[in-house]
């Protein structure tokens, strides 16, 4: 029973914070609301028995990526006054378009068949031991390739961030 209440509470909080990310005037407030959204999603992961993933999510997203965003916003000195705005009719059409996308997606998911789980329910699937086994048995090559991706991204970020490129 308490799981159900927790699910609805976290879902409500996630959707509200996500809406505030889009609609708040100050970019710093947007970042802080996005951090709150990430914490609620981490709560969902805990509810889904993905404990290790919840910890990684908090560390990577709320700890690393959002701090990067916050640094960049403070470096650029953005605030409410310098914030550009779209024309009202463009905002209206954006809201209509995404509302229609929501209607289409929900409508297409309404008629979908429900899946039947083939495996027996295993609550230990999200523990680090099982995840590590899956990662290093079935996904060893993608794991190594993603390390190359991170290296390339690091080199690219340093190159782009330099003052002048000759």
């Amino acid at each position: 029973m308490i799981t159900t209440y927790l699910f609805y509470f976290l879902s409500f909080l996630a959707i509200m914070c996500a809406l505030m990310v889009v609609f708040s005037k100050n970019p710093v407030h947007s970042v802080l609301y996005l951090v709150l959204t990430f914490f609620t999603i981490a709560g969902h992961y805990v509810l889904l028995n993905a404990q290790f993933l919840a910890a990684v999510h908090v560390i990577v997203y709320a700890g690393a990526i959002m701090v990067l965003f916050l640094f960049v916003i403070m470096l650029m000195n953005l605030n409410k006054d310098t914030e550009p705005h779209k024309k009202p009719w463009l905002k209206f059409s954006a809201a209509i378009a995404s509302g229609l996308l929501l209607v289409v997606l929900v409508g297409s998911l309404k008629g979908a068949e429900t899946i039947v789980p083939t495996n027996a329910f295993n609550p230990n699937i999200g523990l680090i031991e099982n995840l590590g086994k899956t990662l290093f048995h079935d996904f060893l090559l993608p794991f190594e390739v993603s390390s190359i991706l991170l290296l390339v991204a690091m080199v690219g970020a340093v190159m782009l961030g330099k003052k002048s490129i000759k």
Partner: peptide, 19 residues
């Protein structure tokens, strides 16, 4: 689905590249 649509709304709605 709702969270994804809010993301799409944010891309269409705002002009600030960071948002």
């Amino acid at each position: 689905t709702v969270l994804f649509t809010i993301g799409v709304l944010g891309v269409l709605f705002r002009r600030n590249a960071i948002i």
